[in-house]
Simulated assay, not measured.
Amino acid sequence: MRIGELSARTGASERMLRYYEEQGLLKPERTASGYRVYADADVDRVARIRCMLSASLPSGVVGQALRFLLDGRAAIPDEPADRARLAETLESELDQLTEKIASLQHSRELLATFVADVRGDAVGPGRPGDPGARVVRRSVSKAGPATGRAR
């Protein structure tokens, strides 16, 4: 398939697909006239690339993960010091991802409380069954019927 079809099938823009190629994450074949030709397996590869990059992993780490997940065994350094540095880099990325997940989970909980407040009659923490009861302030104030002021 050509780049336009891969773009349509994956949701990645043609520009992003070219960027993935520049980074060595995607390696299309080329026709004699220079057109990129992608395999069906590249649809899954692009999905994995997008997922890992959206998790804020650097393209170098994504490349190593792809080599391990899709291309066979990843190149692991022979020297213990090099392996230790690689392990430290990967652990740091894992720690940052764990922190980001915790932050996103907290944001999700706050947003869920806000949505519940907007949809319900009771407003703010302290109502029965409120999952955001630990939040000290109200997430939404209801407007009064005549004045439009918050109650």
Rank of each mutant, 00 (worst) to 15 (best):
T10N: 09
T10H: 08
T10Q: 10
G11R: 09
A12I: 05
E14P: 12
E14H: 02
R15F: 05
M16S: 15
M16V: 07
L17S: 09
L17A: 09
R18Q: 07
Y19D: 04
E22T: 15
Q23E: 13
G24R: 07
G24H: 09
L25M: 09
K27A: 14
E29Y: 08
E29R: 15
E29S: 15
E29D: 15
R30I: 08
G34R: 11
G34N: 15
Y38P: 03
D40H: 07
D40N: 11
D42N: 07
V43Q: 06
D44W: 11
R45T: 12
V46T: 07
V46N: 11
I49S: 02
I49A: 06
I49V: 10
R50N: 06
R50L: 12
C51H: 10
C51Y: 11
S54H: 11
A55I: 01
L57I: 03
P58W: 03
P58H: 10
P58A: 14
S59Y: 14
S59V: 15
S59G: 04
V61F: 03
V61D: 11
V61Q: 09
G63N: 03
G63C: 03
G63A: 06
Q64W: 14
Q64A: 12
A65Y: 03
A65V: 14
A65Q: 04
R67M: 12
R67W: 05
F68G: 11
F68H: 15
L69V: 06
L70W: 05
L70P: 00
G72E: 08
G72M: 05
R73P: 08
R73I: 03
A74I: 02
P77V: 02
P80S: 04
P80C: 04
D82Q: 15
D82H: 12
D82F: 03
R83F: 04
R83W: 03
R83K: 12
A84F: 04
A84T: 14
A84Y: 02
R85V: 09
L86N: 02
A87S: 12
E88C: 05
T89S: 12
T89A: 12
T89I: 03
L90N: 02
E91W: 04
E91K: 08
E93P: 03
E93G: 01
E93C: 10
E93S: 05
L94P: 01
D95P: 00
Q96F: 01
Q96C: 06
I101M: 01
S103L: 07
L104Q: 09
L104P: 00
Q105N: 08
Q105L: 01
S107P: 00
S107G: 01
R108A: 06
R108D: 00
R108Q: 12
E109N: 10
L110V: 14
L110D: 01
A112E: 14
A112N: 06
F114H: 11
F114W: 04
F114L: 15
F114I: 10
V115H: 07
V115F: 04
A116N: 08
D117Y: 01
